[in-house]
Amino acid sequence: MSEVQPKSEALRQMFWRSEILQVMYWLRGEGFGDLVDAPLIERFLGVEAHIGVTYLDRLVDDGDVTRDGEWYALSARGLEEGALEFASAFEALTRPSHGECSDDCWCHASVDEAEACASQRNGPHHHDHGDEW
């Protein structure tokens, strides 16, 4: 997640807000727990301790993150925002590509439906056998 950060302070704040919320949301989803400390977040962000804590404290001030001593957790609002940031960041990787089905397709319900759907998506397999069409 450690990308080159923006030069202006306003954009840098937005950048780190997005990065931290995504990482905290991902850590929670991966089973690291609701409470994480700054070193864990910083490890995944690839930043120095003073940078991570500075932006974490800003998220606490904004109400996206709660703090209990050395531990941080997403607030209800931070959880929602983290989910949105995470989804937005990985949207291109998670949406169906051309020819793939969406999550609500019947092919996810059974093997028969999956085979029928794949066959329909890929189209009929025509082989050149003279005038056999």
Rank of each mutant, 00 (worst) to 15 (best):
W133C: 04
R95G: 04
L59F: 00
D34Y: 06
E30D: 08
L59S: 01
C105L: 09
S119N: 09
A87G: 10
D62C: 08
A109Q: 13
I20R: 00
E48T: 05
E115Y: 13
D131W: 06
L45E: 03
E30M: 13
V36H: 01
G130F: 04
E100P: 07
A49F: 09
M24F: 00
P6Y: 02
E85D: 08
R43M: 10
W26E: 06
P96F: 10
A49Q: 13
F32L: 01
D61N: 12
G123N: 01
F86K: 08
Q120K: 15
V65P: 05
A76T: 12
A118M: 13
D64P: 01
E115F: 14
E19V: 09
L11S: 10
R121T: 07
I41L: 04
P6A: 02
P39A: 01
A49N: 08
C101D: 14
R67W: 02
W106E: 13
R77A: 15
I20P: 01
H126L: 12
P96I: 14
Q120D: 14
S97L: 15
R58G: 07
Q5I: 01
Q120I: 09
I41T: 03
R12M: 07
E70Y: 08
G46H: 02
V65G: 05
W133I: 05
E42T: 03
R43N: 11
Q5G: 04
A109I: 07
Y25W: 11
E80K: 11
L11R: 13
V4N: 12
T66C: 05
D34C: 03
G130S: 09
P6V: 02
E85P: 03
E85Y: 10
I41M: 01
A83M: 06
E30R: 14
L21G: 03
H50F: 06
E113Y: 11
D62Q: 12
L40R: 07
D112Q: 09
D131Q: 07
E48N: 04
H108G: 14
D61F: 08
A76V: 11
V60I: 07
F86S: 13
Q120H: 12
D131N: 08
S110C: 10
G78D: 08
W26H: 03
V36S: 03
Y72F: 15
N122A: 14
M1Y: 06
